[in-house]
Design a protein around this nucleic acid. Structure first.
Length: 117
DNA sequence: GCGGTGACTGACA
DNA sequence: CTGTCAGCCACCG
């Protein structure tokens, strides 16, 4: 039997999950990986972002699980990411974003869209 | 096949 | 709160 849907490459799923993050929202590497159906592959997400060529990809919305920027402070990517996040209305303080303690529900991810929640 | 490295994570002191 | 340790997966020499 033919499969109803061909499984897209993991990379495609990850990219899709990243694109699914609305403006003014942020997501963690592990969270994106989980959304992509690849739990434990947070590093893979990072590798993709590091080698991504897509300017339309909101890579700046991807932060660490602690809500901290994955770039070293003072680095070029760091400043660029913070700059973009602030431009979208995301409150970035000291290179870190106010992240919820933990949420294991896809519904919560939707709450990450509108800021000032 | 092996060890080192990295835009990571969670647990522990 | 910060810092350290071990676990994890994918890529490279």
């Amino acid at each position: 039997m033919a499969a109803l849907s061909a499984d897209p490459s993991p990379e495609t799923r990850i990219l899709s999950a990243i694109r699914a993050v609305p403006p003014g929202g942020v997501a963690g590497y592990g969270q994106i990986a989980r959304r992509a159906g690849l739990p434990g592959r947070a590093r893979l997400v990072a590798r993709l972002l590091a080698g991504n060529d897509d300017a339309t990809l909101p890579w700046h919305r991807i932060l660490r699980s602690d809500g901290r920027v994955a770039f070293p402070p003072g680095s070029r990517g760091f400043r660029e990411q913070v700059r973009r996040l602030r431009a979208e209305g995301v409150a970035v303080a000291n290179g870190r974003v106010r992240m919820p303690p933990r949420v294991d529900d896809d519904l919560d991810a939707a709450l990450w869209g509108p800021p000032g929640c």
